[in-house]
Simulated assay, not measured.
Amino acid sequence: MDSRNRLIPFAAAVLVATMLGACTTATAPDLPSAGTNLNQTQPSGPSRWELVRWQQPDGSVREIPHGDNGEPIIFEFNEGIDAAQGTVSGTSGCNRFTGSYGKTETGIRFDRIAGTRMACPPPRMALESALLKAMQTPFSTVGTQPSAGSTGRQIIWKTVDGDLLQFVEREGVGKRGARVEAAGVEKTVYIDSQRVECTGVGKMTCYRWRESPDAPWQLWYGPIEGLDFEPGVSYRLRVREYQVPNPPADASAIRWQLLKVESRTRAQ
């Protein structure tokens, strides 16, 4: 049986529990906890999560990519999913995104989400638009489950519109407990005050960057994870550069994660 299909009973059980919650306080013993904390099984640290199921309020299920039918939707939490706050990055169905996150009393919220602007087939663009729109408002945690056999930890979030988004923890970039320092190198980069139009798979906007004040400008096609870029301001940044193993054909083989804004200068 496909491993993704084995996850369906978990989502269905949480949905039933959510629907019955208004009628009774009894909880079936085999249902996962509805708390927001997963620390009972793992320490804090970077973690990587894949969206494996998207159930809409009417019970229908949206088709999402899982690697066999497209690049999966991945959320990478730099401080782990249990942290009070941190930076988040990943893929949103078509493009890479970056921003910040913070825990709430009932779940999680996402802030300052920005991403690349590559063009993809219409179904993937529609899925990405729906996800980014949902991330504009906090998610409520309606179910969590520790690791079980070969399946990683799981969490189900409910959007403000009633969609249920089921994520499973994955190994790979940002694996919980991995030494992030060993995965990349630190460097200083200079970022121009304005982004410019450029062409990847489609038209998009790129940063202009260089390694020293007198070096020629180069184009940076991806995001700078953690940077809240303000047009009209040039930056000197300390970043960590990662090599991405087996990147998609339309994505960069290098990632930058912001470590420190060393200076910012407003253009005259």
Results as ranks from 00 to 15, higher is better:
8 I>Y: 12
9 P>C: 05
10 F>I: 02
11 A>F: 11
13 A>H: 10
16 V>D: 03
18 T>S: 13
19 M>T: 01
21 G>R: 14
24 T>F: 13
32 P>S: 11
35 G>A: 07
38 L>Q: 12
38 L>C: 11
45 G>V: 01
45 G>Y: 07
49 W>T: 00
50 E>F: 11
54 W>I: 00
54 W>A: 08
56 Q>H: 12
56 Q>A: 09
59 G>M: 09
63 E>K: 15
66 H>C: 06
67 G>Y: 12
67 G>W: 11
70 G>F: 15
70 G>P: 14
76 E>D: 14
79 E>C: 06
83 A>I: 02
88 V>I: 10
90 G>V: 02
100 S>M: 06
101 Y>S: 02
106 T>V: 03
111 D>G: 14
112 R>P: 01
113 I>A: 08
117 R>F: 01
119 A>K: 13
121 P>F: 08
124 R>I: 01
126 A>M: 15
131 L>C: 07
132 L>Q: 13
134 A>Y: 11
135 M>K: 12
136 Q>I: 08
140 S>T: 08
141 T>L: 09
141 T>E: 04
142 V>S: 09
142 V>C: 10
143 G>Q: 06
144 T>Q: 13
146 P>W: 09
152 G>V: 02
153 R>D: 04
153 R>M: 09
160 V>W: 14
160 V>K: 15
164 L>C: 09
164 L>I: 03
168 V>P: 06
171 E>G: 14
171 E>F: 11
178 A>N: 12
180 V>A: 10
182 A>R: 15
184 G>E: 03
185 V>G: 05
188 T>M: 06
191 I>M: 04
192 D>A: 12
195 R>G: 05
197 E>R: 15
201 V>K: 15
205 T>G: 07
209 W>A: 01
212 S>I: 04
216 P>L: 10
220 W>Q: 05
220 W>N: 05
221 Y>C: 06
225 E>M: 05
231 P>S: 00
234 S>D: 00
235 Y>S: 02
243 Q>Y: 02
245 P>A: 03
247 P>C: 02
250 D>K: 13
253 A>D: 00
254 I>V: 03
257 Q>M: 03
257 Q>R: 08
259 L>S: 00
261 V>M: 01
261 V>E: 01
262 E>R: 09
